[in-house]
Design a protein around this nucleic acid. Structure first.
Length: 341
DNA sequence: CGAATTTGACCGGCGC
DNA sequence: GCGCCGGTCAAATTCG
């Protein structure tokens, strides 16, 4: 968490190094300026007091917010622990069930599409009413918190409260990864160590950002497909959906052929994702936590910038600050001006 | 020149 | 039956 920044850190925007009260540094000033400065110094003392009071107030507020944040984090951790416990219990129950009752639903899936849409709807989005326990593992909750309600996900996980059809989950496993990407970077490329060939792009109904379709081109017969789309909630987040299992090992991540895909891959999003389909749940959980952390850092950074901008705006609105800035700058300019001119 | 990407067309499933 | 929508194909284009 980034609360350290909020709590008691000297504001970077205040360290402008202006040296507001530095009359000795000024040489060669006109009388008019001197008169203005005398007037201003009286005025300034009041303003400085007011500013200090304001600063104290803001600092106090900052401290309170920091405490609230800490409490929130503590509660979050507590909740996460509870959820993890619940998930473990549910998983144990489900494991027990699957060992006692044979997975009866051996009905072959009617069609390829049906299998896909079924598994995808389970995996991505909560357009369909799904049980709240559909997300398995605390990491997914973390992702939900970080990305937004639309991104609730279940990555090829057996849901305890749902009848599980093994034949639907096994053959084409679906896993989802959230990758933080530069919003300026329009390429829907997720660098994950594999080699992908793009075979389509489509704008979908529920998201204005196009969805790109990739096939694994590392091995000729590799059935793995990947869909990449920017999150509707946060365009800096790329949502990569992997389908199927690779029939080959993971290639070396550094240079994969030197073709365009390689170049685009290296230019794409920073990878914080798990290996696609044959992924171990815990590993994915770990990666999702990393992604969440990344998102939080990005949010904190944005907040920081916003705060800095607000402070800058407040300061620039303040005529006293402007006057002080002008006098400081003029003094500095005069200082730097060669005496010969 | 070959391989990868782009993009409009087409196909099949699904809901009304 | 029809229209919508997601997924895929394949010709055209781009790029190294």
């Amino acid at each position: 968490m980034d609360e350290q920044w909020m709590i008691g850190q000297p504001s970077p925007t205040l360290s402008l190094g202006l040296n507001l009260g530095r009359p000795t540094a000024r040489r060669a000033v006109t009388t008019k300026v001197l008169v203005e400065e005398d007037f201003m110094s009286v005025k300034k003392s009041h303003e400085v007091e007011a500013l200090e009071a304001e600063l104290r107030r803001v600092g106090e507020e900052n401290r309170r917010l920091g405490e609230m944040l800490r409490a929130l984090v503590a509660k979050y951790g507590e909740l996460q622990g509870k959820v993890t416990g619940m998930m473990a219990a549910a998983a144990a129950t489900q494991q027990h069930q699957s060992s006692t009752t044979s997975e009866g639903g051996s009905a072959a899936s009617p069609s390829r599409k049906r299998v896909r849409s079924d598994s995808l709807e389970t995996a991505g989005g909560n357009r369909n009413p799904s049980p709240p326990l559909a997300a398995a593992g605390s990491g997914q909750f973390a992702v939900t918190v970080a990305v937004g309600p639309d991104q609730t996900e279940c990555t090829s996980v057996h849901e305890p409260s749902k009848r599980v059809r093994a034949d639907e989950c096994k053959p084409s496993r679906v896993s989802k990864s959230y990758v933080h990407a530069d919003p300026a970077d329009l390429s829907l490329v997720v660098k994950d160590g594999y080699q992908w060939r793009k075979y389509g792009q489509k704008v979908t109904k529920d998201n204005p950002c196009p969805r790109a379709y990739f096939r694994c081109s590392f091995a000729p017969g590799c059935p793995v497909k990947k869909k990449v789309q920017r999150s509707a909630d946060d365009v800096t987040v790329l949502v990569a959906t992997y389908e199927g299992d690779h029939n080959h090992g993971q290639p070396a991540a550094k240079h994969e052929g030197g073709k365009k895909s390689d170049a685009s891959a290296s230019a794409g999003a920073s990878v914080r994702i798990s290996p696609p389909a044959p992924v171990v749940q815990q590993l994915q959980h770990h990666h999702q936590q990393q992604q969440q952390q990344l998102k939080q850092e990005a949010a904190a950074e944005a907040e920081r910038k916003n705060l800095a901008e607000q402070m800058a705006a407040t300061l620039t609105r303040d005529p006293g600050f402007k006057a002080a800035l002008v006098s400081a700058l003029s003094g500095r300019i005069l200082e730097l001006t060669p005496s010969g001119q």
